[in-house]
Amino acid sequence: MNTTGQQRKFNKIILLILEIILLFYAITLIYPFVWMLINSLKSNKEFFQDIWSLPEQWAWKNYADAWESARIGRFFFNSIWMTAVGTFTSVMSAAMPAYVLAKYKFKGSNAVYGLAIVGFLIPSIGTFGPWYMLMQQLSLFNPAGVLIGYTGGIGFYMLVLYSFFKGISWEYAEAAFMDGAGHFRVFFSIMLPLVRGGLVAVATFALIGIWNDYFQPLILLQSEHQYTIAVGLSYLVEAQKYSADYTVLFAAMWIAVLPILLVYMVMQEKLINGFTMGGIKG
């Protein structure tokens, strides 16, 4: 009995130590955002006097300057529509092959699934040369090229949704076929609603990735009017090296990061549950 009590006490101590370590780690992740928020509300003079102090007067004007003068507003709306379209197309281009591979048996289906697995072994930097040449030959150095790049189809999203479709009974489809429904009707009206959890998880993951994407828009967007917020921020950082208006830069960064923080805070439970359920079903 004493041994059991000592073991429990030891486990509690270990658990407490781990909680303290994780709490400290969480603070190190949160603190940069808090520091950036505080300094985004200072005047430039206050910032250079003391980067650690609270602002004497809350300079909300910095956010208006970032939105208009720094053109973050334009980049923001570019990211909004490209993220919306890119998320929809990336999810649908993954859901369709996932459904076909999970529910239809045909020659080469295992090879296609294997190809998706092998794709994870190829470093993305290794495909940069052929990808660049392809975009150049197809004249896709524009928003259309960026959006096409998000419709990978066979990849991580497909594998996640594949496991969801695998866990659905085919009897639902058979009943629909008996009522005269076609393959497209079964897919859109029956199967997709049944994997709603997986769709939400994949869509959230895609939304965050597309909003934060820097590489493809940097390479393919040729006009400043087309820049997304990730690319626009990089140019703003370069500009602030000469103007030294860092408080406006911090405000612009907060405008860029706030939507993703809100999306993740709202969707984190569904995101985690979606991937967990998919893994269990698979």
Rank of each mutant, 00 (worst) to 15 (best):
L236Q: 09
I27T: 00
Q222A: 11
F177Q: 14
G145H: 08
V248P: 00
R196C: 06
N44Q: 14
Y113K: 11
K105P: 01
V112P: 07
S163V: 07
N110M: 09
N39A: 01
I13N: 09
L218Q: 14
K107Y: 14
L101K: 08
Q136M: 13
E174N: 10
K103W: 10
M265L: 15
A239N: 15
F24S: 12
I272N: 01
I38G: 08
G129K: 15
W58R: 03
A239Y: 14
M191V: 04
N273R: 15
A176M: 08
S109A: 13
W52S: 12
P259Q: 05
A70E: 04
V263P: 01
A64D: 03
I229H: 04
G152R: 06
F156S: 00
A94H: 03
L262Y: 02
Q137P: 05
I255C: 04
F205W: 15
L199R: 07
G209P: 08
E171M: 08
Y104R: 12
G86C: 06
V231F: 05
E224P: 05
L218I: 07
M133A: 12
F156W: 09
L258H: 02
M133V: 15
Y264A: 02
T3P: 03
T83A: 02
I72L: 14
E174W: 10
K281P: 00
L138W: 15
G152P: 08
Y157P: 00
T276Y: 08
A203F: 12
V237Y: 13
S43N: 05
I190H: 07
S40I: 10
I72Y: 11
L22P: 06
Y214N: 03
W254G: 04
G145T: 06
S189K: 11
G279S: 11
N39Y: 09
W254K: 07
K270N: 11
L16T: 10
G197C: 07
W211G: 03
F164G: 02
I13R: 12
S163G: 04
L134C: 02
L140E: 01
F88W: 07
W60P: 00
I260M: 13
W60Y: 13
D179R: 13
S69Y: 14
F250G: 01
F128Q: 11
L22Q: 11
N44A: 13
E174Y: 11
M265S: 12
L16Y: 14
L16R: 11
N273M: 13
I117E: 01
Y104S: 04
